[in-house]
């Protein structure tokens, strides 16, 4: 996914509006200058994610919406920045805002940049370029380490966060804008659309259905029952097997079949 020689910034998105959140994730991912490790809707989850990651994989930057309507708490994006910016190993903060004034106030708090709404590809790219320029000064020699960091994604179970490695994930499913992720540890909620996830991990995951995104390496079975095609996705074959059954959309069935067969015979194309 990298642009030549550039290590993508590990990014957390904090945005309470569903379309805006997915849009930003897609734009960040498409820039190839950043990879999104999580997208959350509330300041509470954001704080948890930053604190958890500070001791682990590390988040390079956080995009925060200035107008977050904190569910339950009356807390804005600026409050979130204020509470986190001083701590050791704190990431760089970028404020997503409709007006520059907010950003100007926030600069005093230590926000490094801002992103105006409506977002565009150009604005996101410019912001990320500036962040990349700042990174050595802020992060020291983390670049070398960053290459070896594993890709993880932040999901949630009720109100606590879980960090999932990609190989643990079987599939993502979406229903009425609620996305869940099926893993060997159980099923968790995710505040992102399938399109945004696909933009992030398109190589590992296959979109087999409007509502399903499946980890290609966990597909164990391809069943055909008349017109219906279904997949079994899980860690192993066998009787008491764990995993999920996933429908394949009629118009995608042939493509999915071909991909699986091609991989199976070792004909994967780069």
């Amino acid at each position: 996914m990298n642009v030549e020689g550039v290590v993508p910034l590990r990014t957390l998105v904090v945005e309470d509006e569903w379309p805006a959140r997915n849009y930003l994730v897609e734009l960040l991912q498409a820039s190839r200058l950043a990879e999104v490790v999580g997208a959350v809707a509330t300041t509470e989850q954001a704080r948890e994610a930053v604190q958890a990651e500070a001791s682990g994989v590390g988040i390079d930057c956080v995009f925060v919406d200035v107008q977050l309507l904190g569910q339950g708490r009356n807390e804005t994006g600026i409050d979130l920045v204020r509470s986190l910016v001083g701590s050791a190993g704190a990431p760089m903060f970028v404020l997503a805002t409709a007006f520059e004034q907010h950003a100007l106030e926030a600069f005093e708090l230590g926000v490094v940049d801002y992103l105006l709404k409506p977002f565009t590809e150009d604005r996101v790219t410019q912001t990320l370029r500036r962040l990349h320029e700042r990174r050595p000064a802020v992060g020291g020699s983390t670049d070398a380490a960053a290459v070896h960091r594993t890709e993880r994604i932040v999901a949630r179970k009720k109100r606590s966060l879980v960090f999932l490695e990609l190989h643990e994930i079987w599939a993502f499913e979406t229903q009425d804008r609620l996305t869940s992720v099926h893993t060997e540890h159980g099923t968790f909620d995710l505040d992102l659309s399938l399109a945004a996830i696909e933009a992030s991990f398109g190589r590992t995951f296959v979109r087999v259905h409007r509502q399903w995104l499946v980890n290609a390496s966990h597909i164990k079975e391809l069943e055909r029952d008349g017109d219906e095609t279904r997949l079994f996705v899980g860690p192993a074959l066998g009787e008491d097997r764990k995993g999920v059954r996933v429908p394949v959309a009629r118009e995608r069935a042939a493509a999915v079949r071909n991909t699986l067969l091609a991989n199976a015979t070792g004909l994967r194309r780069g």
Binding site: E17, P19, A20, R21, N22, Y23, L24, E26, Q67, A98, F99, K117, P118, F119, T120
Partner: peptide, 9 residues
């Protein structure tokens, strides 16, 4: 502005 942003998304 937020609505425009949502539509763009």
């Amino acid at each position: 502005l937020n609505t425009l942003n949502a539509i763009a998304g």
